[in-house]
Each structure stands twice: as C-alpha cells, then as structure tokens.
C-alpha cells in the first residue's frame, strides 16, 4: 500500500527564557494509507507536540512532513483534541457541521453529511442541544463525528478517550472501530493505554521519554474485527502487552533519572 504520511527527521524545540527544551527529536516514520497507528509514550514525551505539528497548529524547528493528497477538495487533516474541543456556544449539530461550514460547502451536502455522522455516533436526538447538556462521553462523540464528517485525508486524535470512565471508553472505542472500518481513513492516535493501542492499532509507535523520538515500531498482528473480549483473550496480545509495558517502565525510569540529574 502507498505511503500516506511521511515524516522525516522532524524536530521541535521550544525556546523560552534563555532555555531550550527539545520536545520531539529526529522523528522519521511513514504511515500507509488506511492504517491505524497508535503513538504510545510516557507523559510529556512530546506526543501532543508531534500531532500539533502535523495538524499545522505549530511549526516544526527542522525536518519535514508530508501528507499525500488524494482528493483535492478534501482538507488534509482534522484533529480530535486531548481537552474538550467541543465549542460550547454551538449546538451539537453546528459542532459536527463546523468543518464543513468553514469550507463553505453546499448547504445540502453539509446537512446530509452532518445527519449521517450524527446518526453514526447516536446523537441524532441531541442535535439541537448545547454541549453543556451532554455527558463527557457524548461530547467526545461530537468531536469524533466532527472530525470524520469533515472527510479529511487523515485523522489526528489526541487521547480522545483519556478522560472517560472505563465503560464509556469501551463503547466509544468500538464505535470508533466501526466508523474507521467503514471510512477507511488513515488515523494517527495518541494514547496512554496499552489496552487501547492493542484494540485499535495496526501499528504501535513507542516513544522515548523527552526529548521524544520513536524507538520501537510494533506491528499488531491481531485479527480484525476486534472486540475488547477478543483482544483480552488473545495470547499474541498478551505478549505485546508485556513488551510495550516493559518498554514504558524503562522509559519512565529514564525520564525520572533525566529529571533528577
């Protein structure tokens, strides 16, 4: 399959008050079309920074990245943010339609796509409500629907389920898998949770403690369609879990030493 995202020697350093802090260092990786890739690493290792660069929200210090364009009318990427990114003064429907409206698409197309994705995340009945009336899980559904409805070349997701309780997390993970299977989008997904990575990903990229770089590239060869029960019962998943777990332990230790010295 062809390459969809190509990242080459990407580095980002923040310079503040005479001090330089390298957040991500020399990241080189390519992601194929339609692949679901999870980015896993200790807190503060630069995952969000990497995603924000690809999202065009901050500028890289050096290196480059390229997102392959297929349809010239599609936006390159849409992001689901780590914090609550649902805009409180727009209704659920207006939030989902946000990207489409910003692009000035035809009203009929906006309505048709918005309806379709509201339905997919089960929020049709809440379309006219404001976000304050929604639970945390419903808000994240809005974020996800907004990103998919925008029909971007790639999707960027920054720990979208991080703040949810277990029950809601499982439900949303499976919903996400459904939508992904239907739309065949390329997804770059940040998570802290190894379980989540194993459930969702084709590949897991492991990052080192800051400055973050990619130290392992693990293929998750677990058969799809996956459910949480199946993954939990799979012996191959258990092996991968231990492998990733050990790596994270190591990195966290290294990070601690790095901070104390």
């Amino acid at each position: 399959m062809k390459e969809k995202i190509v990242i080459e020697a990407l580095t980002k350093a923040f310079y503040q008050k005479e001090k330089i802090h390298t957040a991500v260092e020399d990241i080189t990786v390519s992601i194929r079309d339609g692949e679901f890739v999870c980015l896993v690493g200790p807190s503060g290792c630069g995952k969000t920074t990497l995603l924000r660069i690809i999202a065009g929200l901050i500028k890289e210090s050096s290196g480059s990245y390229n997102i392959q364009r297929e349809k010239k009318e599609s936006p390159l990427q849409s992001m689901v943010f780590q914090e609550q990114g649902v805009i409180p003064w727009l209704t659920v429907r207006e939030n989902v339609a946000f990207g489409l409206k910003m692009r000035g698409l035809d009203k009929r197309i906006v309505k048709e796509r918005t309806d379709r994705f509201l339905e997919k995340v089960g929020l049709t009945a809440y379309a006219r409500q404001y976000p304050k009336e929604l639970s945390g899980g419903m808000k994240q559904r809005v974020s996800i629907a907004r990103a998919f409805a925008n029909d971007p070349e790639i999707l960027l997701m920054d720990e979208p389920f991080g703040a949810l309780d277990e029950q809601n997390k499982f439900i949303l993970q499976e919903e996400l898998l459904h939508i992904w299977a239907e739309t065949k989008k390329t997804v770059l997904f940040i998570t802290h949770s190894i379980d989540e990575a194993l459930l969702l990903a084709d590949r897991v990229l492991l990052m080192s403690a800051g400055p973050g770089s990619i130290v392992r590239d693990i293929t998750v060869d677990i058969e799809r369609p996956r459910t949480m029960e199946k993954v939990r019962a799979d012996p191959r998943a258990a092996e991968l879990f231990v492998e990733i777990w050990n790596h994270l332990q190591e990195e966290v230790q290294k990070g601690r030493k790095g901070n104390s010295s």
Binding site: E83, R146, N150
Partner: peptide, 11 residues
C-alpha cells in the same frame, strides 16, 4: 482550545 479548533478546521 476553541481557537485551535477553528484554525484546525480552516476558519
């Protein structure tokens, strides 16, 4: 975050 959302979605 809302400014970032708007920028990311091409406002």
């Amino acid at each position: 975050i809302y400014l970032d959302v708007a920028r990311n979605y091409g406002a």
